[in-house]
Amino acid sequence: MTHDLSPVGRVLRSSTTEFVVGCQDLARVPTFGSFVKVKAHDGIWVYGAAYNVLIDDDPFVRQIIGNPHIPREVALDQKENRQTPIEVKVLVLGYARDGLVYQYLPPQPPATLSDVYPCTASEVTAFTDQLSYLRTILFTPQIPADELLAANLREAYLRRGGDREFLVEAGREAARLLKDEYDRLKAILSRIRPSLFRSSTPEPARRRGVT
């Protein structure tokens, strides 16, 4: 899978548990659940999953939108040229240093204005070889945790080349974590059924006979 690896935006503000990315181009905004990375202090790459995209309004847009007569040129100018403030919230899931992945919170958050990149397929694969980060997603309050986990697993499944074994293992991990919350588990599992994926999905790359 080819990927544009130029930055998708820059850090607007950050904390240990999450950061907000400012983006200018809606076409390049990280999709819900996808993995991004940003360099922090001391050679650390902080990894996270995008979980909320906010396209803010401003008084100028409000003035225009209240008008029934919006010329096409004006609408296109607003969509294509104006630096509409697009904010993407990212939940921090772990970090990597010297090629090793750590699925717990990094010692320091990324600095303001740091470039944020989409993760490559091999980075996604390396990160998702462990599944401890599922706990972080599931038990972070005030985020759409179940939807985020499902979207993130679908993304990881595809980026790993349609790795069915991964999906099954992730489902088991979710079942362990949600052993007392059947309804939540059911909702998540129904959102990651392989049959949901398009028929163009690549054939499983690393099938190991697990069903």
Binding site: P71, R72, E73, L76, D77, K79, E80, N81
Partner: peptide
């Protein structure tokens, strides 16, 4: 600066 082509249906150049 902006060049706005009225009637073109295209985004202006800014």
């Amino acid at each position: 600066s902006i060049v706005y082509c009225h009637g073109s249906g295209a985004a202006p150049t800014v």
